[in-house]
């Protein structure tokens, strides 16, 4: 049974990693906590639902929704975040407040436009479940593992093997010096938003398939839990975010099943965060801004 719970935890952890990746990429380069990523996750899930509903093609739903939400991210960056950050002596709370506002707006917009009720993805896998010696594995989990792995590999490739990625890493290291050296920091920022919001959209669709339901409340838990994950991972560190996501997914699952802790499951992420920060204040992989 432990193996089953371990797998359950890994599934949740993979989703956490993917959900928080957007916020990590954006923090890495802009130094702001972009809660609105949870809005991207919500809008991505709904957009994906409409595309899947219209075409019956889940791959198309993933691709179009990720592209559209990624572009939306760039638009928000250009229209909202960049002007705020361009002001001299901007308090770091200001972009955070803007992000909270955007997130709240996205939830209410989805509720008003798409309706308050639940929508079911009703995506049918060829098999319902695999049963291997007492352990159940759902095809949706396999999809989640595979997609998370592919997306993270693509991310690793872009950041480490392309000029765009080099520009991103340089801008994350020191935006001003990079600009002085001729790095186009604007396009590096745009890259963060395209990838970040796109990943959030993919995570939203996966959750929609996993639970076969999406509601306007979908973004609520990620909006605060992703904070614990990106801080735990060492703010702005993509690899740290993956480890932190998996760690929190496992901690939540195993602690809630095997111990009688008197706190809600959702609070476990923050307890883990507090413990890690007490031991290592910079987070798990907290060599600041290294990829």
């Amino acid at each position: 049974m432990f193996l089953q719970q371990f797998i359950n935890g890994l599934v949740i952890g993979s989703l956490y990693a993917l959900t928080a990746m957007g916020a990590t990429l954006i923090y890495g380069i802009l130094g702001i906590l972009d809660i609105a990523n949870a809005g991207a996750y919500l809008i991505g899930a709904y957009l994906g639902w409409y595309i899947f509903y219209a075409t019956g093609n889940i791959a198309l739903a993933f691709l179009l929704s990720m592209a559209a939400v990624g572009l939306l991210g760039v638009v928000l960056q250009r229209l909202i975040y960049s002007p705020i950050l361009a002001k001299p002596r901007t308090l770091s709370i200001i972009p955070l407040v803007a992000a909270v506002g955007l997130f709240t707006m996205s939830s209410d917009a989805v509720r008003l436009i798409c309706g308050a009720g639940t929508k079911a993805y009703n995506f049918k896998f060829p098999v319902d479940a695999f049963h291997l010696g007492g352990v159940t594995i759902l095809p949706s989990w396999v999809l989640i593992f595979a997609l998370t792995a592919v997306l993270l590999l693509i991310l690793w490739f872009i950041l480490n093997r392309t000029r765009m990625g080099l520009a991103w890493r340089a801008s994350a290291e020191d935006a001003e010096i990079s600009r002085a050296c001729g790095v186009n920091t604007n396009s590096a920022m745009a890259l963060s938003y395209i990838l970040g919001y796109g990943f959030a959209a993919a995570a939203g669709i996966m959750v929609g398939i996993l639970y076969n339901s999406i509601t306007p409340a979908l973004g609520e838990v990620p909006s605060y839990k992703m904070l614990a994950i990106i801080v735990l991972g060492g703010l702005g560190n993509p690899l740290g975010t993956v480890i932190a996501g998996l760690l929190i997914g496992l901690a939540e699952t195993l602690l809630s099943v095997y111990t009688k802790i008197p706190i809600p499951k959702d609070a476990i992420a923050f307890v883990v965060l507090i413990i890690v920060l007490l031991i290592k204040p910079s987070g798990l992989l907290g060599q600041k801004n290294k990829v």
């Binding site: 719970q5 599934v11 809630s256 959702d266």
Partner: peptide, 28 residues
Amino acid sequence: ISDNDMTSVISKIKGEDVDLIYSVNYYA
């Protein structure tokens, strides 16, 4: 109420060999 994941709870109950689950939950 914010937690929609029932996977681990049901995996745990599976090991208990119960003959009924009483689910006092909202629809989601």
